[in-house]
Structures are given as C-alpha cells and as structure tokens.
Measured scan of single mutants.
Amino acid sequence: MQGVVKVNSALNMRSGPGSNYGVIGTLRNNDKVEIIKEVDGWYEIRFNGKVGSASKSYITIVN
C-alpha cells in the first residue's frame, strides 16, 4: 500500500510506533512512502530504504 505525507513542514520518522521512540529520519510534504502495516495509530513505513514509523494522521493512502 502506498501513502503520501501531508504536513506543513516536516514529519519525524521514528524507530517505533510512538513519540517516545528515537527519530531516524524526516519526511517532507508530498513524500511518497510504502505502508507496511498499522500499529496503534501509527504506520510502519518504508522510505528511502529505511523502515520506521510515522503517525497515520499525516499520511494519506493512495491507490
């Protein structure tokens, strides 16, 4: 499943599904990500070869 980031500035990509996990990357508006699965309001995603988590509130699913 594919998604597109929708933010005003930037979205942190984290090492796990929650804001208490470390930041491993930064996503910008309109970045395209691969959604692997949903976990507690977060998506596990793949972006630029990295796997991490980002809040699903800022990612829109595209077909």
Score class of each variant (00 low, 15 high):
residue 46 R to L: 12
residue 11 L to M: 10
residue 33 V to G: 01
residue 50 K to Q: 13
residue 30 N to M: 10
residue 56 K to R: 07
residue 29 N to C: 11
residue 29 N to Y: 09
residue 48 N to D: 12
residue 14 R to F: 14
residue 51 V to L: 11
residue 15 S to G: 08
residue 35 I to K: 00
residue 3 G to I: 05
residue 57 S to P: 06
residue 61 I to M: 09
residue 4 V to L: 11
residue 26 T to G: 03
residue 22 G to Y: 07
residue 59 I to K: 00
residue 31 D to P: 01
residue 60 T to H: 13
residue 37 K to M: 09
residue 52 G to C: 05
residue 20 N to C: 12
residue 52 G to L: 02
residue 11 L to R: 07
residue 23 V to P: 06
residue 37 K to I: 08
residue 24 I to M: 05
residue 25 G to T: 09
residue 36 I to S: 03
residue 60 T to F: 13
residue 57 S to R: 15
residue 48 N to E: 13
residue 5 V to F: 00
residue 12 N to E: 15
residue 18 G to P: 00
residue 37 K to G: 15
residue 28 R to S: 11
residue 22 G to A: 14
residue 7 V to F: 05
residue 47 F to G: 02
residue 23 V to L: 05
residue 32 K to M: 14
residue 21 Y to V: 03
residue 55 S to Q: 15
residue 2 Q to E: 11
residue 49 G to Y: 03
residue 58 Y to S: 12
residue 53 S to M: 15
residue 6 K to S: 10
residue 20 N to M: 10
residue 40 D to N: 13
residue 48 N to A: 11
residue 10 A to C: 15
residue 60 T to D: 13
residue 31 D to S: 07
residue 35 I to C: 04
residue 13 M to L: 13
residue 18 G to K: 02
residue 24 I to Q: 02
residue 15 S to I: 06
residue 32 K to A: 10
residue 34 E to Y: 11
residue 59 I to Y: 00
residue 28 R to G: 08
residue 34 E to H: 10
residue 1 M to Y: 10
residue 3 G to P: 01
residue 42 W to A: 01
residue 48 N to Y: 06
residue 32 K to Q: 12
residue 48 N to Q: 13
residue 34 E to R: 06
residue 16 G to Q: 02
residue 49 G to V: 03
residue 42 W to V: 01
residue 4 V to W: 03
residue 39 V to Q: 10
residue 41 G to A: 06
residue 61 I to D: 04
residue 46 R to K: 12
residue 51 V to E: 09
residue 46 R to E: 09
residue 40 D to S: 09
residue 4 V to N: 03
residue 35 I to E: 01
residue 5 V to P: 01
residue 58 Y to K: 10
residue 44 E to I: 15
residue 33 V to N: 00
residue 16 G to I: 02
residue 5 V to S: 02
residue 33 V to A: 01
residue 19 S to H: 15
residue 51 V to I: 13
residue 2 Q to W: 15
residue 52 G to H: 02
residue 48 N to M: 12
residue 14 R to E: 03
residue 15 S to L: 09
residue 16 G to A: 03
residue 19 S to C: 15
residue 13 M to C: 09
residue 7 V to G: 10
residue 63 N to L: 11
residue 12 N to H: 14
residue 36 I to H: 03
residue 50 K to E: 09
residue 30 N to I: 03
residue 1 M to P: 08
residue 13 M to K: 02
residue 62 V to S: 09
residue 6 K to I: 11
residue 7 V to R: 06
residue 41 G to I: 04
residue 5 V to Y: 00
residue 16 G to T: 02
residue 59 I to V: 07
residue 62 V to Q: 09
residue 36 I to E: 02
residue 47 F to W: 10
residue 25 G to S: 07
residue 47 F to R: 02
residue 52 G to N: 01
residue 49 G to K: 05
residue 41 G to F: 06
residue 62 V to H: 08
residue 53 S to F: 15
residue 39 V to W: 10
residue 53 S to L: 14
residue 26 T to Y: 09
residue 34 E to L: 11
residue 36 I to M: 10
residue 15 S to F: 06
residue 11 L to T: 11
residue 28 R to K: 13
residue 17 P to Q: 04
residue 5 V to L: 03
residue 18 G to N: 06
residue 35 I to N: 00
residue 46 R to H: 08
residue 14 R to N: 05
residue 11 L to F: 03
residue 39 V to N: 08
residue 7 V to H: 10
residue 22 G to T: 13
residue 12 N to T: 10
residue 22 G to D: 15
residue 9 S to Q: 12
residue 44 E to K: 06
residue 9 S to V: 13
residue 60 T to S: 11
residue 61 I to K: 07
residue 3 G to W: 04
residue 35 I to G: 01
residue 3 G to D: 03
residue 27 L to S: 01
residue 43 Y to N: 00
residue 31 D to T: 08
residue 13 M to S: 03
residue 39 V to E: 10
residue 27 L to K: 01
residue 12 N to S: 11
residue 2 Q to K: 11
residue 1 M to H: 10
residue 43 Y to D: 00
residue 38 E to I: 08
residue 1 M to C: 14
residue 23 V to C: 08
residue 49 G to E: 08
residue 51 V to R: 09
residue 1 M to G: 07
residue 54 A to H: 03
residue 55 S to K: 15
residue 44 E to T: 11
residue 30 N to Y: 08
residue 4 V to C: 12
residue 32 K to S: 09
residue 22 G to Q: 14
residue 13 M to I: 15
residue 40 D to I: 03
residue 26 T to H: 10
residue 14 R to C: 09
residue 47 F to I: 09
residue 45 I to R: 00
residue 15 S to K: 08
residue 4 V to T: 08
residue 26 T to R: 11
residue 9 S to W: 09
residue 63 N to C: 13
residue 14 R to T: 07
residue 3 G to L: 04
residue 29 N to D: 10
residue 25 G to R: 02
residue 6 K to Q: 12
residue 53 S to I: 10
residue 63 N to I: 13
residue 50 K to G: 06
residue 39 V to I: 13
residue 24 I to S: 03
residue 16 G to L: 03
residue 18 G to C: 07
residue 38 E to P: 02
residue 14 R to G: 04
residue 50 K to H: 09
residue 27 L to D: 01
residue 42 W to P: 00
residue 18 G to S: 05
residue 15 S to W: 05
residue 55 S to C: 15
residue 10 A to G: 11
residue 57 S to A: 14
residue 44 E to H: 07
residue 40 D to V: 04
residue 52 G to S: 03
residue 56 K to P: 06
residue 55 S to L: 15
residue 36 I to Y: 07
residue 62 V to R: 04
residue 11 L to N: 04
residue 41 G to T: 06
residue 10 A to T: 14
residue 5 V to E: 02
residue 57 S to Y: 14
residue 63 N to K: 12
residue 59 I to S: 00
residue 59 I to W: 00
residue 59 I to N: 00
residue 25 G to K: 04
residue 30 N to F: 08
residue 5 V to N: 01
residue 60 T to L: 11
residue 8 N to E: 14
residue 51 V to S: 09
residue 34 E to N: 07
residue 16 G to K: 01
residue 47 F to L: 06
residue 36 I to N: 02
residue 8 N to H: 12
residue 14 R to M: 13
residue 28 R to I: 10
residue 26 T to A: 08
residue 2 Q to P: 09
residue 26 T to E: 11
residue 35 I to D: 01
residue 21 Y to M: 05
residue 6 K to H: 13
residue 34 E to S: 07
residue 35 I to V: 11
residue 52 G to D: 03
residue 32 K to D: 04
residue 20 N to D: 13
residue 7 V to P: 02
residue 63 N to R: 11
residue 56 K to L: 06
residue 32 K to V: 15
residue 10 A to W: 14
residue 35 I to L: 04
residue 1 M to T: 12
residue 43 Y to W: 06
residue 28 R to F: 12
residue 54 A to R: 01
residue 26 T to Q: 13
residue 30 N to D: 11
residue 54 A to P: 01
residue 60 T to C: 14
residue 4 V to S: 05
residue 16 G to R: 01
residue 48 N to S: 07
residue 54 A to K: 01
residue 12 N to D: 15
residue 54 A to Y: 01
residue 23 V to G: 02
residue 44 E to R: 05
residue 61 I to W: 02
residue 58 Y to M: 11
residue 61 I to S: 04
residue 17 P to V: 04
residue 19 S to I: 15
residue 23 V to I: 13
residue 32 K to L: 15
residue 57 S to V: 12
residue 38 E to N: 04
residue 12 N to Q: 14
residue 24 I to P: 01
residue 4 V to R: 09
residue 8 N to D: 14
residue 41 G to H: 06
residue 45 I to P: 00
residue 45 I to L: 08
residue 4 V to Y: 06
residue 24 I to N: 04
residue 45 I to S: 00
residue 38 E to D: 07
residue 22 G to I: 12
residue 54 A to C: 11
residue 29 N to F: 08
residue 13 M to Q: 03
residue 46 R to W: 10
residue 20 N to P: 01
residue 13 M to Y: 04
residue 37 K to R: 14
residue 43 Y to M: 04
residue 16 G to W: 03
residue 30 N to G: 15
residue 2 Q to V: 14
residue 34 E to T: 11
residue 55 S to Y: 12
residue 23 V to Y: 05
residue 38 E to W: 05
residue 63 N to V: 13
residue 46 R to M: 12
residue 57 S to D: 15
residue 9 S to T: 14
residue 36 I to F: 08
residue 2 Q to C: 15
residue 61 I to Y: 03
residue 62 V to A: 09
residue 37 K to V: 06
residue 10 A to V: 15
residue 37 K to F: 09
residue 38 E to C: 09
residue 21 Y to C: 09
residue 60 T to K: 13
residue 57 S to Q: 15
residue 13 M to W: 07
residue 63 N to D: 13
residue 15 S to V: 07
residue 31 D to F: 04
residue 46 R to Y: 11
residue 52 G to W: 01
residue 26 T to D: 06
residue 13 M to T: 03
residue 22 G to C: 12
residue 1 M to L: 14
residue 7 V to M: 05
residue 18 G to R: 00
residue 58 Y to H: 14
residue 36 I to C: 08
residue 58 Y to I: 07
residue 38 E to H: 05
residue 6 K to Y: 06
residue 20 N to S: 11
residue 1 M to Q: 11
residue 42 W to C: 04
residue 42 W to G: 01
residue 7 V to W: 03
residue 51 V to Q: 10
residue 21 Y to A: 04
residue 51 V to H: 08
residue 25 G to P: 02
residue 6 K to G: 06
residue 30 N to Q: 09
residue 24 I to R: 01
residue 45 I to G: 00
residue 60 T to P: 08
residue 11 L to P: 04
residue 56 K to E: 06
residue 50 K to N: 09
residue 45 I to W: 00
residue 24 I to T: 06
residue 11 L to Q: 10
residue 6 K to W: 03
residue 62 V to C: 13
residue 57 S to I: 14
residue 26 T to I: 15
residue 50 K to I: 15
residue 15 S to C: 09
residue 47 F to Y: 10
residue 45 I to Y: 00
residue 42 W to Y: 10
residue 19 S to Y: 15
residue 22 G to R: 12
residue 5 V to H: 02
residue 34 E to Q: 10
residue 62 V to W: 06
residue 46 R to S: 11
residue 36 I to A: 02
residue 14 R to V: 07
residue 18 G to W: 00
residue 53 S to E: 03
residue 31 D to L: 04
residue 8 N to F: 06
residue 23 V to S: 06
residue 29 N to T: 08
residue 49 G to C: 08
residue 54 A to W: 02
residue 22 G to L: 12
residue 28 R to Y: 13
residue 17 P to E: 03
residue 23 V to R: 03
residue 53 S to P: 01
residue 25 G to L: 05
residue 3 G to R: 02
residue 46 R to V: 13
residue 18 G to T: 00
residue 7 V to N: 07
